[in-house]
Design a protein around this nucleic acid. Structure first.
Lengths: 354, 354
DNA sequence: TTGAAAGCGGTACCAG
DNA sequence: CTGGTACCGCTTTCAA
């Protein structure tokens, strides 16, 4: 009975939450004072502040996000747009890094998986433009033909940071790795492990792959061995990485039995390659040394374990979020910054010296 | 110059977004009419509706989330609490399913990774209670000692659906699999493949593992072979699944050389097990048949490929979201529902008949 | 069919 | 140091 009366007087919210006005009424003070007290304003007398805070805690007061957002024109939400999140280990790690950093800043993190569908992506972004988010972290997945949506974000001055892949011709903030250098180091690792006839297998000719291959070429050129450009294989087909690796390796290994090393631009390709090698009774690493790229779980678990280039997604995500928050909290425009995260070669069985 | 004047009159928002009031002023009609028109109310004359909509599209009007939330007391956001998201393939798939369904309903999806830290989890939930979210999907990770926070959610009537694991003694909606049955089917598969001395390796004694083991016991009991309870191994240590599998399998395989089958309650355990078997020159599947659980990527990629129980995360996530939305949109209380998603044994090399 | 006005929960400005 | 009040953008009565 008493409860009924109570519930008629206050806690009328959807989820029975108490509001600032409730507190004010109960304590017979003005809502504005309550607001000030709860945000620890120095102007409020400490005794009233104490009284208010105690009441708030006791009644489990929680500020209403929507109301605060509306007033402050801040959502306390950042948004991350990634393709294939989750299913893709690397993106997953990025996400974790962003999340960690967001938590520090008291921000929430909205996640939009795009599945590589650019049009959906653009639509999502439009939905975010008004009060949807305070900033965006995204990986650039366009083919370069329609960057209008990126331009729109820039024009509207929405804090924006690219991670992993950035649009090549726009002045934006980004957190990336040096794919050329990483490809170079990977190939060099094979050379140092004793390989001299080294091929390179890759997915489609996108920015990332082209750069990794470029690094490969550089390393080969620096070595004594002459580069046979036939030894570079791009695959434009969209099938699972492992399958793709098997298909293209089959031909490659048959055609060039003298090969003693392969740089695969992803771990999945490397996995497929080794499977084929085993079938053809080629021993890895004794007869063929292999290195992959990204340090996915599979590269460690596979037998033989696969050497790879560690691409520190978590760190990249954290750094991207840090950049984003510096933009969000900046009073004046911040200059565009490019952060290059260091990668390192991880030595495993697949490239052991004989 | 003209732009300056324009920007003083309208588009004063943080991101230069136009508002309903702006449209009303420009068209010299009342904001309420604009609101009605934009939500397709049937009372508005079609000619004015058309005029308003055209203007809105032309000026790229987007409704303000915060304002709408505040007014409607709906956030159009659901929240998903999962441990280890991303890094954990299964949770990743759940997430994807939820997301897909949320998109259909025009909802956004807030993701909170909890890292198995219950206290953080509880704190996060508290933050969500007021206007933070319209509903919660979560996996129950508590040890059962402190379910207060679940009770609080229930008392506050916040739409709530558990996925994968649910609190055993509370009346809640949940989307789960029948772990007993799945364990039973997995073990039966080994029996049918010709194994008769079958062990079972498992992680810690949590609800999930206990049920899978229970299914194993049932299958063994039904078969002629007598169950040796020594052949059930629980591992309470918190180390990587694969390592754990290696450590416990080492002893197991040495102690019981007569073993010809193992049911591992996770794919990672199975991977570790097979690694050890190979080292001890035990041929899989010829001498030892193995089945794992969850159908992670590794189980397909490993050599030999590992038979497993498919746990359809995507479907579970979708179903959970559907349940949640039925609760959110319900006018009166909906009864608690338990949905059991079907699992199936996936036959691969590791359990091939000799 | 449209307009006027109130209010969702907070914040911030101006007075006192 | 505190109270009063307007307002953030949108929806929803109530009147007209």
């Amino acid at each position: 009975m008493f409860n009924l009366i109570l519930s008629l007087n206050m806690e009328q919210n959807r989820y029975n939450q108490i509001t600032i006005t409730d507190i004010a009424k109960a304590l017979k003070i003005n809502p504005s004072t309550v607001s000030r007290a709860l945000s620890d304003s120095s102007v409020v007398k400490s005794s009233t502040k104490k009284k208010i805070k105690e009441y708030a805690v006791k009644h489990n007061y929680q500020p209403n996000y929507a109301a605060r957002s509306l007033q402050k024109k801040k959502t306390h939400t950042i948004c991350i747009l990634l393709p294939k999140i989750v299913v893709h280990e690397f993106f997953g790690k990025i996400l974790l890094g962003v999340q960690r950093e967001a938590q520090k800043h008291g921000y929430r993190c909205l996640i939009l998986p795009t599945n590589y569908d650019l049009h959906k992506e653009i639509n999502e972004i439009k939905n975010l433009l008004n009060g949807g988010t305070d900033g965006i972290i995204m990986s650039y997945q366009s083919d370069g033909t329609s960057d209008d949506y990126v331009n729109e974000l820039i024009e509207r001055k929405i804090p924006l940071v690219f991670v992993d892949i950035a649009p090549p011709n726009l002045k934006v903030s980004k957190v990336i790795i040096d794919d050329i250098h990483a490809g170079y180091m990977a190939t060099k690792h094979l050379l140092e492990a004793g390989a001299s006839q080294i091929a390179c297998i890759s997915g489609p000719r996108n920015v990332i792959n082209l750069q990794r291959v470029q690094g490969y070429q550089k390393a080969i050129n620096e070595s004594k061995s002459n580069l046979n450009t036939d030894l570079i294989i791009f695959n434009e087909k969209i099938i699972e990485g492992e399958q793709l690796g098997m298909v293209c390796s089959e031909k490659l290994l048959k055609k060039y039995p003298q090969l003693d090393g392969v740089f695969a631009t992803t771990d999945m390709l490397a996995t497929g390659l080794i499977k084929v090698a085993k079938k053809q009774n080629l021993r890895v690493p004794e007869e063929l040394k292999v290195i992959g790229f990204s340090n996915w779980a599979i590269s460690m678990l596979y037998e033989p374990s696969i050497s790879t280039v560690d691409q520190p997604g978590f760190e990249m995500g954290m750094k991207a979020a840090q950049l984003l928050f510096s933009k969000i909290s900046a009073t004046s425009k911040v200059s565009e910054e490019t952060v290059i995260i260091k990668t390192k070669v991880i030595r495993r069985e697949s490239s052991k010296v004989n």
